[in-house]
Design a protein around this nucleic acid. Structure first.
Lengths: 339, 339
DNA sequence: CTGAAAGCGCTTACAG
DNA sequence: CTGAAAGCGCTTACAG
């Protein structure tokens, strides 16, 4: 079955493609096209189930009404939820979204950008990897609309939407300290990503302000490669002698997942033997016998804002130089793991 | 910055667009285009960082090298992992993928199909909802390539890739029975989806073959709407008097997640008070103090096969009528929840 | 009030 | 060995 095109309708009605196009795009009035003929066009279009070819439309208009979301890994719970929220918000504006995973690899990110630009996506929502500065600058130089999400690249002035990583962590650590967990270990990934740096700083400042000494020794930055092993090692180092810590803070959910498995393997009880708090929340945290206290990011809100900012910038073709920066509060969910 | 086009290159070199196009598409040889001129073209294209406009190419060629993946909800762990695997496999073939969530709503599925067909996606991978028969038939009638995943619509002859729901469940229930859990409750969603029906049947047949009587009373089909409440109710009914069951089987991971929370709230111990087995695996299942025995679907394999079948069908334009049907074995992962 | 024409950027069958 | 032309399906400025 060949799809019906503009000319099919035009021919059947004995009018021009222009007229049909105008009518179907709701521009009949402003072009003073006759009422009866308009109605006929609309009716026939419905009968033939006419659907404009978006490819042709895009080519002509120079926009595709498609945006791209580039995250580290779409199968990661955090990004999966982000994907869904982006999809929903984009849908409201008539945009479709292409998802891609960078695997935290700047080269892959660059490749993705190239391919997607060729496909004429109208803009990007990006969770930038380490060392992706040049690629982001390239977008900026070429006036391609984009907004950063989850992480930002501070020296570069861009749109971004992130969670309040610093204060969330500061307050969570403060909470632990006030609960009596004087020495709380901090396990994070070794990474210069803005969000990770903020979380670490939040921890450090809380420890410092509460007069904890030597907290530098309680920090472990695990390796991305050999991740699981690295996390387990950190957990053991902190919980076993000579450190003997009784509380831990996980800077991400993927750390938390591995760490908790390790803690179970060690036959330690939560919170009796060790109290836990994690950045990011997950369904999994809730089904623990001692559900994990967590910092939940406002994923839906973040994603929604990012889409709105992006589409806004896409629509006003004249690229404005002011950029929008949003830092959203998180929710601290106190559960049994830290009582 | 205006992107460089074919004519830019042609003009600078004083040759025709045709020649440039031929050269850049590797058809220089077969069209006996001069070696020196070919080299010049390639070189200039690189210098100008020429990237063909895919929109124009698609319009001309009638294909977009984009496929669509429609699942129930991309934020669901199972589908998120599927999304990632589809992305990776599609990438190998030079295809991009658009993700969409149907929310198990056939009307939304139909809408999505329309919009995506307008966007000239070359084919679909679909996890069909209930009552989506007409939409699937429409695709079939219009010779639009697609493959069903996770679920199939038995009377209709289509490509599909699913897990071996029947045998996986049969064997898991058999395992429980042999472990001494004579009366195992089965909690599923009320749904006529093929995968759910197979799982239920697997349970029934195992119970029957092992001579368990009255197992019909041990089955609970929860409601999609009011889901959490419905699951909790089912759990309580089965575990409390008069049923007093000591083992449960969850037909999906989302049921399992809610059920386990409920079991924790009831202060029951796993596996001492109640043994558990779930269809689908998840990271969350592993961090339980008593990790959950689970049936893991071969998500990567399923997704990879689906993409390969789809792209295969897209490439051989002549739509062949034989369809590929694949049923993949699952992995039964025995953990502490059922010992 | 309506139509003919140009053009978005590409590919390919046809000439020569 | 290379170029001119048509055409994918649309939109829009220009005529009349």
């Amino acid at each position: 079955m060949k799809k019906t095109s503009l000319s099919d309708i035009a021919n059947k009605l004995g009018v021009s493609k222009s007229l049909v196009s105008l009518v179907l795009n709701g521009k009949a009035k402003q072009n003073r096209i006759g009422d009866e003929i308009s109605k006929k066009v609309v009716k026939l279009a419905q009968q033939l189930n006419y659907q404009p070819n978006q490819m042709a439309r895009s080519l002509r208009l120079g926009r595709s009404e498609t945006i791209a979301l580039i995250v580290a890994d779409i199968s990661n719970q955090f990004f999966a939820r982000m994907g869904r929220a982006v999809e929903d918000e984009a849908d409201k504006h008539g945009y479709k979204v292409i998802f891609s995973s960078s695997d935290e690899n700047p080269d892959k990110l660059g490749e993705l950008l190239n391919v997607l630009i060729d496909r004429q996506v109208d803009g990007f929502i990006i969770s930038p990897t380490l060392k992706s500065k040049e690629h982001i600058l390239r977008l900026k130089k070429n006036n391609i609309p984009f907004v950063l999400i989850d992480r930002c690249l501070p020296p570069i002035k861009t749109n971004y939407v992130v969670a309040d990583n610093y204060n969330s962590t500061y307050n969570a650590v403060k909470f632990m300290l006030e609960k009596g967990y004087k020495k709380t270990g901090f396990i994070t990934v070794s990474s210069g990503l803005s969000n990770m740096k903020k979380r670490l700083q939040g921890y450090k400042d809380a420890m410092k302000n509460f007069g904890v000494r030597g907290y530098g020794n309680l920090i472990r930055e695990v390796d991305y490669n050999n991740f699981d092993e690295s996390v387990r090692e950190a957990v053991k180092e902190l919980l076993l002698p000579p450190n003997n810590l009784r509380s831990l803070f996980f800077a991400t959910i993927i750390i938390g997942m591995v760490a908790i498995k390790c803690i179970n393997d060690m036959n330690l009880r939560v919170p009796q033997d060790v109290a836990l708090v994690s950045f990011d929340d997950s369904e999994g945290y809730q089904i623990c016998y001692s559900p994990i206290t967590a910092i939940a990011q406002p994923i839906d809100l973040m994603s929604g804002e990012a889409v709105r900012i992006l589409i806004n910038e896409i629509k006003q073709k004249n690229v404005k130089s002011e950029k929008t920066q949003i830092v959203l509060p998180t929710e601290f969910i106190i559960r049994d793991s830290c009582c």
